[in-house]
Design a protein around this nucleic acid. Structure first.
Ligand SMILES: [Mn+2]
Ligand SMILES: [Mn+2]
Ligand SMILES: [Zn+2]
Ligand SMILES: [Zn+2]
Lengths: 126, 126
DNA sequence: CACTAATTGCGAATGGTTCTCATTAGCGAC
DNA sequence: GTCGCTAATGAGAACCATTCGCAATTAGTG
């Protein structure tokens, strides 16, 4: 455990939300101005492999990361305002129980991403 | 409708599976050697906007495309052999019915991606 | 055919991520 | 504490999928 990794993990945890690598890099430099972007990416890989952090693929060209939480959760992405709405749902259980093709598949990770328009954006005409 | 677009759409349809842009480009050049990669990308955007083609984000750095099919389907990705297993499941209905946060959200697209190990890979020790 | 707007091919640019390599920091054994 | 070894870091270059800019070509219309 290095100074840099400690800082980065703390920042991810306290952020709560969905950080991308560049935002994490920006926040890290405020505390340790010499930290490098390479270190950020290397730490993210490491944390992911250790199961401390999860990587999400939203509809953008970069990834998002968040600290692993205890319960399975998924995301609704609003195409209008860009808001990310989280919800919990035992989808992996639903699928293993109801989908024949998934019955003898050992599931490691489940990622559900739904895009559309939130209630706000629907009211104000998208 | 240009010569290039006709060819590209035909290739996507006859491929059946999950093409990436480069594979589509390679196949297109066999029929029309002067077609350019830009045209491939431009056509894919167009087809996506027209609803003829769907874009998938698997765990790789590039995207995959397939002709839009009538019924909602999702993917299991084997981390062992790379196989992509498709399955049908009315997940968007399940979510809109069971998830309060999704109730007043207008869903445009649903993408479920599960990774793990297929039965084959589990037998042969991953 | 001729005209016009849309599309193409090509190469260069972009942006997120990964790599290389010289320097530095962590850490167990003294 | 200091030494020695290994792993991690910073800086920049490289990478690769995708996008852009622009001049040349084409589709579609009259
Ligand atoms: Mn989340
Ligand atoms: Mn499919
Ligand atoms: Zn919204
Ligand atoms: Zn497999």
């Amino acid at each position: 455990m290095t100074r840099q990794r400690t800082l980065l993990l703390d920042l991810i945890k306290e952020a709560g939300g969905h950080l991308d690598a560049d935002e994490l890099y920006r926040r890290a430099r405020e505390k340790q101005p010499r930290v490098s972007l390479s270190t950020v990416y290397r730490a993210l890989h490491l944390f992911k492999k250790m199961g401390l952090v999860e990587e999400y693929h939203f509809d953008e060209s970069h990834h998002h990361y968040e600290a692993t939480s205890k319960k399975e959760h998924h995301h609704l992405l609003c195409l209008g305002c860009g808001r990310v709405i989280e919800f919990q749902s035992p989808l992996s259980r639903y699928v293993t129980r109801n989908v024949p093709e998934a019955r003898d598949f050992h599931i490691v990770d489940t990622e559900l991403r739904m895009t559309g328009y939130c209630s706000n954006c629907r009211k104000t005409g998208q």
